[in-house]
Simulated scan of single mutants.
Amino acid sequence: MTTAPTPVPSSAAVDTNGGGGTPGTATPASPAAPTATRRRGRSRTWLGALPLLVFFAVGFGLPAVAIAIGAFTTSSDAPGGGGTFTFSNLTDSLQGAYWTALLGSIKLSALTALIGTVIGLPLAQAVATSRFRIFRDMVTSGSGVLANFGGVPLAFMFVATLGNAGEVTTSLGLKKYGWSLYTFDGLAVVYLYFLIPLMILTITPALEGLRVQWREAASNNGATNFQYWRYVALPVLLPSLLGGYVLLFGASFAAYATAEAMVGSSIPLISMQIGDALSGNVLVGQGNLALALGLDMIVVACLVMAIYLPLQRRSAKWLS
Rank of each mutant, 00 (worst) to 15 (best):
T112Y: 04
S130A: 14
V299G: 04
L283Q: 11
Q273W: 09
A277I: 06
T170R: 11
G166N: 07
R40I: 05
T86R: 03
A4R: 14
R131Y: 07
R40P: 08
S130V: 08
V284R: 11
T2D: 12
D185W: 09
I119N: 01
A36I: 13
P239I: 08
T117Q: 03
L174K: 06
M1R: 15
Y245S: 04
R40W: 09
L283Y: 12
G244Q: 04
L283A: 14
L162M: 02
S240G: 13
I298D: 00
L162S: 06
A101V: 08
A217E: 14
S266A: 14
A233G: 03
A218N: 06
Y308M: 08
A254I: 07
G59S: 08
L248K: 03
L303S: 06
G243T: 02
F72I: 11
P79F: 09
G59C: 01
I69S: 01
R136L: 05
L248C: 10
Y231V: 10
M157H: 06
L289M: 10
A64F: 00
Y177E: 11
G150S: 13
L50G: 05
L52Q: 02
I119E: 12
P268V: 07
T204F: 02
L291Y: 00
K107T: 15
E167F: 12
A124P: 03
G209D: 04
F135L: 15
G83F: 03
P235T: 05
A110Y: 06
G80R: 13
K107N: 09
V232Y: 00
T73Y: 00
S43D: 03
N220M: 14
T3W: 15
S279P: 01
D15S: 08
Q95W: 11
M138L: 11
P235N: 03
G150K: 02
V299D: 06
T37H: 14
L52P: 00
T204C: 03
G285R: 02
A64C: 10
T84D: 12
G285H: 06
Y231I: 09
G285W: 06
V127E: 00
A113T: 05
L154E: 07
P23Q: 08
T129W: 10
S315Q: 07
L192Y: 01
L103Q: 15
R42M: 13
T27E: 11
D77L: 03
G48N: 09
T16C: 06
A290F: 00
A188T: 07
G41L: 15
Y193T: 14
T86Y: 04
V14G: 06
G294Y: 00
A255E: 15
T35P: 05
L248V: 10
F72K: 04
A251I: 13
Q227G: 07
R211A: 10
G20T: 15
T202Y: 05
P310M: 13
S93V: 04
D137W: 09
I298G: 00
V236Q: 05
A316P: 01
L278I: 14
A33I: 14
S43M: 09
A233T: 01
